[in-house]
Design a protein around this nucleic acid. Structure first.
Length: 494
RNA sequence: GGGUCGUUAACUCAGCUGGUAGAGUAUGUGCCUUUUAAGCAGAGAGUCGCGCGUUCGAGCCGCGCACGACCCA
């Protein structure tokens, strides 16, 4: 579809030329709207039954023409700015013959400024009667059809700018996203947490088990990895003496895409000295339920047709309890490592030769329990085997003082009392490396500096990571992570 | 990686058993000074995702590829 041959695009360009011939600067930047559409809509109560505008009180607004109904010598249009949409009435007798001739060259999609007074139409709609029309930016491409709008998912993601212009609910989703992140900052800052920034490019990609993206620094002649997690750096800050820190930023994982995974995603991580994972559960409950009520007006949110009750307190299970009560497993099996491994095999779970019962249990949990946890549920006592950075439980060293939080069957948060014994930490990192030996893209190297930091002494602490994108999905009722990321990753068009 | 579905005008979509392309919106023209999915009249607009094949003839059938959605791993 060559642009030169496309009729609609040609006509738009012709109109732009026509306007220029009329002496109009079609890319002007000499107009400053004094009002927003929202300002004008706020006057609604004062404009009750005026069917003729009060020209003594004039307003100046600017926006994009979203609908246009022309008559011979007058027209109605809807103008949209960031704050909303209002109807405008343009009459030739009011704006003058010359201005009306220019106005007639304007299209849906053009950015235009108007001045005028407010009135109500016969049907009662608050409208602005234009006394002045100012073309500001010519649009050379037609907007999608007014009734169905833009629905093609691929085009919506690839041309998010069009999606944002024509789909108000998309604008609303991203406003909410920003609001959620602001509320998280407020919440943590008010509790004495300090927001920090740690490296996005790391010589060793640690703090999680995932494949990293690799890049290269020319001047230093070294490879670097985009971080898969900020964890090891935030813990270094605990060693340094900052007792409550958090970071909200992007993580990068070189893995598949799905409705729940984007290669870059936003993570909140926070760490608190002298706290335990129990404190983290309390804080999470309080923070998430508060944000939900601030953003949606209720602690019961509708997600894809089902009610999710976020009011505290939330259900708390150990992993074994969850496997028994939700997964329907027999407690006697869980107590016997051999039987756990056998059961995993029965469920066609493929395990590495070196994998133990802890790994098997975690896989069974993912298979049998995870998707059933709709209302928020903390699952604690993760096997030590799958938790290389978490503190062992004092009574049972086979499990850690860790939890994951599930809502609508999805992992939303992961937290634990931090391991601060450098000897144990080094052994466990080494074990991870040894066991993941056949996959050199994961855990390529032991972070000796991190261990050295722990040797200086890290105060006992708890830390947590919350996937911001998934939280936003929940609170905006979005089925796909791509609906809450402005520019999600797609393959190139051609 | 595997499976299913989709890709037709700028947008939203039809298109039968294989017979050379349709609607609405948008656009251009005419009429129209309170419309709001404005109205009426008549008009232009397509590499049917790309390639190969089958056929007298392919939007439609077959194979391959690209992009996307969903499900599975």
């Amino acid at each position: 579809m060559s642009e030169e041959l496309n009729q609609v695009l040609r006509q738009r360009r012709q109109k732009a030329t026509d306007l220029a011939d009329l002496g109009v600067n079609i890319y002007a930047n000499d107009f400053k709207p004094a009002n927003s559409v929202k300002d004008l809509l706020g006057m609604a109560e004062e404009i009750t039954d005026e069917t003729e505008p009060d020209q003594g009180q004039t307003y100046t607004i600017s926006g994009r023409i979203m609908a246009l109904r022309k008559f011979g010598k007058a027209a109605f249009l809807h103008l949209q700015d960031e704050s909303g949409r209002i109807q405008i009435y343009v009459k030739r007798d009011v704006v003058g013959t010359e201005a009306y001739a220019i106005f007639k060259k304007l299209d849906i999609g053009d950015i235009v400024g108007f001045s005028g007074g407010l009135f109500r139409t016969n049907k009662g709609e608050l409208s602005l009667q234009a006394s002045m029309v100012k073309p500001i930016t010519k649009s050379l491409r037609p907007l999608p059809e007014k009734f169905h709008g833009l629905t093609d998912i691929e085009t919506r993601y690839r041309q998010r700018y069009v999606d944002l212009i024509v789909n108000p609910e998309v604008r609303e989703t991203f406003r909410k996203r920003v609001e959620i992140i602001r509320l998280i900052r407020d919440f943590l800052t008010n509790r004495g947490f300090m927001e920090v920034e740690t490296p996005m490019m790391q010589p060793i990609a640690g703090g999680a088990t995932a494949k990293p993206f690799k890049t290269h620094h020319n001047a230093l002649g070294m490879d670097l990895y985009l971080r898969i997690a900020p964890e090891l750096y935030l813990k270094r800050l605990l060693v340094g003496g900052f007792e409550k820190v958090f970071e909200i930023n992007r993580n990068f994982r070189n893995e598949g895409l799905s409705t729940r995974h984007n290669p870059e995603f936003t993570m909140l991580e926070f760490y608190q000295a002298y706290a335990t994972y129990h404190d983290m559960m309390d804080l999470t409950e309080e923070m998430v339920s508060w944000i939900a009520s601030e953003v949606t007006g209720s602690m019961v949110v509708k997600y894809q047709g089902q009610d999710v009750d976020l009011s505290p307190p939330w259900k708390r299970y150990t992993m074994d309890e969850a496997l028994i009560e939700v997964g329907g497993l027999d407690g006697a099996i869980l107590a016997d490592p051999e039987k756990v491994l056998a059961l995993a095999k029965e469920h066609n779970i493929k395990l590495e030769a070196k994998a133990g019962p802890g790994k098997a249990k975690t896989e069974l949990f993912e298979l049998l329990v995870e998707e059933k946890l709709i209302n928020p549920t903390f699952v604690t006592s993760y096997p030590t085997e799958v938790s290389p950075l978490a503190r062992r439980n004092e009574e049972n060293p086979e499990v850690t003082d860790r939890f994951e939080l599930f809502i609508t069957g999805r992992e939303i948060a992961n937290a634990f009392s931090e391991l601060n014994d450098p000897i144990d930490q080094k052994q466990r990192l080494q074990k991870q490396i040894d066991e993941g030996g056949n996959d050199e893209e994961i855990f390529p190297e032991l972070d000796e500096d991190f261990v050295r930091a722990l040797e200086y002494g890290m105060p006992p602490a708890a830390g947590e990571g919350i996937g911001i994108d998934r939280l936003v999905m929940l609170l905006t009722d979005s089925p796909s992570i791509r609906d809450v990321i402005l520019f999600p990753h797609l393959r190139p068009e051609k």
